[in-house]
Write a protein that binds this DNA or RNA. Structure first.
Lengths: 199, 199
DNA sequence: AAAGCAATGTCAGTCGCTGTCATCACTATA
DNA sequence: TATAGTGATGACAGCGACTGACATTGCTTT
């Protein structure tokens, strides 16, 4: 995932550079100012100095602007699981992936908070977020299967990992004092273990 | 004048009776014939002998036709959890709810299979399904909190229950020979317990 | 200079969905 | 019997998301 400041990155940007980034910025600022629904794609394009049609060439729909980064997170999770020691149990491998992802998010806390405030205010955006999380779960399950984990253990472990992450993430967002996401993830997993133990 | 011979069904249907049901049937048949995207709301309304506007008076959007039954399922789950013996652990109460829900679905297996084949073919529908499941999870967590369960245990148990249900449901759908959903749910929970134990 | 190319612009069109107002079938009341 | 509700529906106009088709632009290559 290219981050920012692409100086000379191949043939990119014969016109005003970084069209995609401008669209992203314009969209995020408008979503924060007026809310997601009230913001029109025409407005986003105008603020970015581009046409509405161009917006849809960079993003499949109005929501995707906010979820563009999910791919990088997924790659990181899958990669970490894949490169976990063979001796690691499935849930330990997943935890390693989640911790890596948590560390990534930790660096972008401010952006994550803003993003989440927009998402929390709109049902369509929540739907999109949930399908991204589901995609993460299946990707992790695939990575586990590659490690020899059978079904339904692979799917369950992947889904359980997402549950742990979701709960930890929510606490991380709604906490006033800056707190580390990584230990929250560890605690969340411990809690899940406790909860599934009794009964 | 009256050759209609309508059985006075609780004041419903001064016009042709059961408009909502006709819309539902029309939609489902068209989704099965042509797919969700290819089907237009105008077509649904026409087949039901109603106007497009009327469709949107009965269903908030084109997708909701397939999900309005989720409310009943949620009530059943929450009710079962609430009425579980006070001695029951959180996960046991959730399991009781899931079993009740599974029994309900078991009676409508044919419909569930058709429904799922439509949903599986369309991403928008999957998004809607996921948010309904998320709603189920939070409703179960609420029911647990009412029983005195603290956070984050309540949320985690609710989410874990949904995970168990999802995995069991998927297996139930994709199996050729008719199999009982209830034991699949039980097995799924056992697997989750096993998976969270080691590591 | 000409050709090639990828990103962008322009335009028309479909479809989901909403607001508004009229109309209909029936009911309640005078 | 007449009249005034009442809730469900129809008819219509309009917005905004998204798409397909085609022209244009600015740079690179030949």
């Amino acid at each position: 995932m290219s981050l920012t400041a692409i100086k000379y990155d191949r043939g990119m940007g014969r016109w005003e550079p970084n069209a995609r980034g401008r669209l992203e910025q314009a969209a995020m600022s408008l979503y924060l100012e007026s809310g997601f629904e009230q913001t029109t794609v025409a407005e986003i394009a105008k603020r970015a100095g581009l046409s509405e049609r161009t917006f849809f060439r960079h993003f499949t729909d109005k929501r995707e602007v906010l979820f563009w980064g999910a791919g990088a997170l997924q790659d990181l999770l899958v990669g970490t699981i894949a490169s976990a020691p063979t001796t690691a149990t499935p849930i330990a491998a997943v935890l390693a992936g989640l911790e890596a992802g948590a560390a990534l998010l930790q660096e972008r806390r401010e952006g994550a908070v803003q993003r989440q405030s927009v998402i929390a205010a709109n049902a369509e955006l929540q739907e999109r977020e949930l399908i991204k999380l589901a995609s993460l779960a299946t990707a992790m399950a695939d990575a586990l299967r590659q490690r020899g984990v059978k079904e339904p253990a692979a799917s369950l472990t992947g889904e359980a990992g997402i549950v742990v992450f979701k709960v930890a993430f929510e606490r991380w967002i709604n906490v006033t004092n800056e707190q580390d996401l990584v230990p929250l993830v560890r605690d969340s997993l411990k809690e899940l273990k406790g909860v599934t133990r009794d009964g």
